[in-house]
Design a protein around this nucleic acid. Structure first.
Lengths: 343, 343
DNA sequence: CAACGTAGCTAATGCGTATTAGCGAAGAAA
DNA sequence: TTTCTTCGCTAATACGCATTAGCTACGTTG
């Protein structure tokens, strides 16, 4: 290591320019209101020293002293740069990054959270949550207890994706899966389908619950029966069951399951959508390839990331008008997997 | 915000148990070595107070005192979360994240670097570099001057990818392109090829220089002539030139160029590899699709990211034994684009 | 000319922790 | 008794920054 490993501090800048550390701090923070005055010449001198040294305020000290440092944490329950989940999380991060950059905030990936019992923990003995002013939470399902603790301890945070209350309202920017799914059901109904099935968990994480709720609501409104197919059996068995029940359109919670179903159907000599319509309730969360473009909807992921940061900074600034629970509309996709049923 | 109530501090614990703040800190850190002694009874008293209050050390203050923040900067010469698919940089980031997680470091994305003359600049007014303890640099070619400045100013950093000295040795974790390329050449020679061409820049960034060096070395050793094809003309013209020169195997610096070449060859009614063998010197850096699986090698990107963080933290900790310049072997890929030449 | 402003700065302090020099008491050695 | 140890602890300080009270020098005003 090349000798002086010490960072440049305000003290250094102060000595270089012959002013006090306090003055450097004042200049740095652009303080020039009624209570504080700095001669333009002095200001310039300090600024030029700052530029020449590349000085940046230590975020840690800054946070300790001022309780904020313009750093936003990003916590994910899966690796941020996922190997397995394909690019699903990517658009969220793009939005988060764009928004943060626009607001002049730095992004800190809270990667130091250790994995226990197969998932990351926010709270552990040396959690860095407080390093950042606030935090964006990302992940299909967030740990209820941890969420509750975040709320209880008053940590400023925003969830990407709707979350149920956890001992208090959870700020979130989510996708309106219920409405989007109901719309898809109506499309199928309009096309003439009367026997629709829902393939997926239909419960567990809020995103699944919401989809299923939308599905049920729309069918109830139409006075048609619902049918829920779990995902725990092979696509072959599933297809058998669907055909036996006379199902003509399937709403698929997980894109990949739709692909698998379509593949099996093709192997059987069936045609999608002529023999079976498939509607995808969102983007692929696992890497899959298919030459079919599924009819369904798109999750406004980038926009969600963007707005999440907006909500978070609003929260931090205490902006009163900020809606802290937002549901964004999904964009319908006209694909090729929906056709009227064969009589 | 509800965070208004003051958090419990060591001072509070100290008052509750009638000891000093220092003692609380000592107990907390389990200090009981030769220089420090705490009566078991006192220790118990403090610990129980800590338990009853749920006290947790403020990580911010902790890091201020520790004089480092365990934040690693990640600087890329492209957007960190690129919008394009098939992202070349992704695996590096996966490795970086994994390693950071293991080492308990957080990652700061240095994204707000402005773009000047078509590339991001590390150094500019308001560069956030010094926010982190050290920094990982990612990008095909790093600006020489900026590298030099990093070295000169003694900034702790590691480059992902080998770099020439820049006023001093540059810490890096690179891929051993020279060896990998030489191996590919030898494969071609073993298959019976004698007229090999190198398609690509062959210079510029170190990664290209290294590949070309490996190519040249292996051919020199075999007593065969080299042939260097630049990339500035159309694949069609290129193919003409290769065929005219009787070239039977091409080493391709850029995957995408190999794809383009294969495509043009196919259009001409030629078969790869029967009529022309193509060896890809690394993974695609641009999104390309091809149904050919190219023979060539794989860059150990994830491993490189992983080790880069390791080198950086070693550097920061001043670990003496740490090799700060590492070249990792590339993994050969048996594809379908190499066959003995027709003769 | 005294009283008073004002512009432009600095000294001092606090944020919550880690670390170290060193102090008082009690016991051991002489 | 005196001196030396050892134990158990505390006071003081540093970390780098933000904030505020207040000081000095230089007008301005009545």
């Amino acid at each position: 290591m090349t000798g002086s490993r010490r960072r440049v501090t305000q003290q250094d800048i102060a000595r270089m320019t012959g002013v006090s550390q306090a003055t450097v701090s004042l200049v740095l923070n652009g303080r020039d209101d009624g209570s504080v005055r700095i001669a333009p010449e002095t200001r310039e001198r300090v600024l030029s020293a700052i530029r020449s040294t590349g000085y940046v305020a230590d975020p840690v000290a800054r946070r300790l002293a001022a309780r904020h440092n313009r750093i936003l944490g990003v916590f994910t329950y899966e690796p941020v740069f996922p190997a397995g989940t394909g690019d699903f999380y990517h658009p969220f991060l793009v939005g988060i990054e764009e928004s943060a950059e626009r607001l002049g905030c730095d992004l800190l990936l809270l990667t130091s959270a250790p994995v226990t019992d197969g998932r990351r923990r926010i709270f552990h003995d040396d959690n860095r949550l407080r390093l950042a002013d606030g935090c964006v939470l990302l992940g299909r399902s967030l740990d209820r207890d941890e969420l509750g603790r975040l709320v209880a301890e008053g940590h400023p945070f925003v969830s990407v994706g709707r979350r149920d209350d956890a001992g208090g309202p959870v700020p979130y920017v989510g996708a309106d899966y219920a409405t989007a799914t109901a719309d898809m059901v109506r499309r199928a109904l309009d096309a003439g389908h009367t026997r629709l099935a829902y393939l997926g968990q239909g419960g567990g994480p809020e995103s699944h619950t919401d989809r299923f709720a939308g599905y049920r609501t729309a069918l109830d409104a139409a006075g048609l029966p619902t049918r829920h197919e779990p995902t725990d059996r092979s696509p072959t068995d599933l297809l058998d069951a669907l055909l036996a029940a006379g199902v003509t359109a399937v709403m698929v919670e997980e894109y990949a399951d739709g692909v698998a179903l379509a593949t099996v159907a093709a192997e059987r000599g069936l045609t999608v959508p002529a023999d079976l319509s498939i509607l995808a309730l969102g983007d692929p969360t696992r890497p899959t390839t298919s030459d079919l473009e599924f009819t369904g909807f798109r999750i406004p992921r980038r926009e969600m990331g963007w707005q999440a940061v907006e909500v978070l900074t609003g929260l931090l600034a205490g902006v009163p008008g900020t809606a802290t629970q937002r549901l964004l509309p999904c964009q319908p996709v006209d694909g090729v997997t929906l056709l009227p049923p064969r009589h």
